[in-house]
Design a protein around this nucleic acid. Structure first.
Lengths: 134, 134
DNA sequence: CATAGTCCCTCCAGTCACTGGAAGGTCAAG
DNA sequence: CTTGACCTTCCAGTGACTGGAGGGACTATG
């Protein structure tokens, strides 16, 4: 398979696949003309990575997960730990985003959004760090 | 004020403040020895940016918000639009993260996490794209 | 006056995961 | 033989910093 076919079947840009080769996630063979020649296994690894990426795993996580996938003697506990760590990071991010959302939506609701300059959003941003404790 | 004082008062690394100067968010004066000499106004702009960044605004947003803040003839509607766009992006990210969280936590719950190799997490990642429609 | 320690300076490189583009080689069809 | 679609490599840019090298400036002490 050429890179175009793989790109379509793995639903990944060809650029990304070349990048994944660069960083060693796949190592496709080469035709005499220099074209990459992917096997079904290569494609499978790429769809694996694509799926992991949509779940938010980092490339390093993907590398680890691929290694575990290749290791028939793996312990599922190792996989679970990678996933749990990742989930923890996601929870943390969600919490941060929730905090931002709350503040932002409060400010947006408080803002008239008209032609006048007065704006609680700017007032909030411009508040000093000691804004009201004294 | 030297950069160290500003760093402490704005709760920003000195490195970051230099970077903000590089990209034109502040333009502190210079002492004859080359040291940056920040005014209270500079500090105020930096705390403004710091606050905006904790609310997740991009640097470009910060640039826009600072310009609006400086413009006494601004319309609050302009500020509100920037904030609303940002909130929309946050909502979208939260939705994505929720989707990841749901899938991940399902998979993690399904995984025994023991010494055996069988693992629904890996099975999910390794599923083919046509995984069950045929 | 020398020295030590703390601050400050600039410039370069790296992060993460791609993405865009230039410049050029290869292949199948007409 | 040309056109167009494909493929190749290499370089640079993204966002928002961060780390480090290599060196100058200032303050306090002996």
């Amino acid at each position: 398979m050429n890179i175009g076919d793989v790109a379509e079947r793995a639903d990944l840009p060809a650029k990304t696949i070349r990048y994944y080769e660069d960083i060693g996630l796949v190592t496709p063979a080469r035709d005499p003309n220099g074209y990459r020649n992917f096997t079904e296994t290569d494609l499978h690894r790429l769809t694996f990575v694509a799926r992991a990426r949509t779940l938010g795993f980092t490339i390093e996580d993907c590398r680890t997960l691929l290694a575990l996938y290749d290791d028939v003697g793996r312990a599922s506990a190792d996989v679970k730990r990678v996933a749990q760590d990742h989930l923890d990071r996601i929870e943390e991010k969600i919490a941060q985003l929730h905090a931002m959302r709350e503040t932002l939506s409060d400010l947006i609701h408080a803002c008239q959004g008209d032609h006048r300059p007065d704006c609680p959003i700017l007032s909030d941003l411009a508040r000093t760090a000691y804004g009201g404790n004294d």
